[in-house]
Simulated assay, not measured.
Amino acid sequence: MAVTSRDVARLAGVSQPTVSRALRDDPRVSEDTKKRVRDAAALLGYVPSEAGRALSSGRTRRIGLLVTDLDNQFYSHIIAPLHRELETHGYQLVLHTETTDESVAERLIANGLDGVILATTTVESVVPLRLRDRGLPFVYFNRTAALVDADATVVAPSAGLQDAVDRGLALGHRRIGAVLGPQNTSTGRSRERALRAALADRGVSLDADLVRHGPFDTDAGDAATAELLALEGAPTLIFCGNDVMAYGALNAARRAGVPVPDGVSIIGFDDLPPASWPIIELSTIAYDYVQMAREAGRLMVRRIEERPQEYAHVEFATTFIERRTLAAAVTR
């Protein structure tokens, strides 16, 4: 006969639910109790059954993470901390990529998930609406949608961009360009608003001819920067919607024979690990995206297990990190 969690509970002198919590390293269980349960499980050769857990609790303990595509470098840096955070609460992370609003919501619902973390939401997306109507809990990560309120972890871009603008102006930059993210995303909109406000507060306008929008990817940053550098009176400083777009901007400058920073300065946003590499040394706007991912995991678990009445909106502050890609303005 197979060993059950009840056998482990009897040997450890605890309740059967305590066995389940202890074996998934629930922080509510004391370390002494966890040790007794693990020792008893090892002695009896007990292996927890995920299927059994799902049947007994009504939960699969699986959380979906919805992203746009797996090629985006930003996602690769948030998956590990999110996975680790969910694992400490006994949940598994399941990765999903987005196709269209018409199919993705039903696909998420059909996968037997306990909840979903939305990392790819557009402002007008109906996915949150459909998840809400089907009773599947979700949390916004980095982006939010307009139709449905929910728990969210977001970036507050103003402080970092204000410092970056101050530094750029102090270095003599007045012809300033921007390669910004999609206008149908909350991140694209909030970063653009913050940049325009910081410049306006200092008496500088962002010339419409020097602004481009595109996807948050390297190709978009490359193409947009190539256009800006080809203009008569090209910008001496370009703000990019994220680091990945800034990498494309650096490629475009190299291809055009415009040295960085002596010909054009470039500033990114996110401070991903490659930004600090000696070969790149990108000036950028930084925030703690690792803690932001972990907080999204905590909010997801809280939403599933506690169902609080109020939604939590957690903002992460930004700072400006100056590196090699920013220098004094020059006339070209």
Rank of each mutant, 00 (worst) to 15 (best):
A2G: 09
R6A: 10
G13C: 04
V19I: 10
R24G: 13
V29Y: 09
S30R: 06
R36A: 04
R38M: 11
R38Q: 09
R38L: 05
A40F: 06
A42E: 12
A42P: 06
P48I: 04
L65C: 04
D69W: 04
Y75Q: 02
L82G: 04
H83K: 06
R84F: 02
R84C: 00
E87D: 11
L93V: 02
V94Y: 00
V94G: 00
L95I: 13
T97K: 01
S103V: 11
A105G: 12
L113S: 07
I117D: 10
E124T: 07
P128M: 13
L129V: 10
L129K: 15
P137K: 12
P137Q: 07
N142E: 11
A159L: 08
G160M: 10
D163W: 08
L169P: 01
L171Q: 09
T185E: 10
R191T: 08
R193H: 13
A197N: 06
A198I: 01
A200F: 02
A200T: 05
D207T: 05
D219F: 01
D219K: 01
G221E: 05
T225Q: 00
E227L: 09
L231N: 13
E232N: 07
T236K: 14
C240P: 13
C240F: 15
L250Y: 10
R254T: 15
G257C: 15
G263A: 15
I267V: 15
I267H: 00
L272C: 05
D288K: 02
M292A: 06
G297K: 00
R298N: 02
L299K: 02
V301G: 03
I304G: 09
Y311H: 11
Y311L: 10
F320I: 10
I321E: 11
L326W: 14
A329I: 14
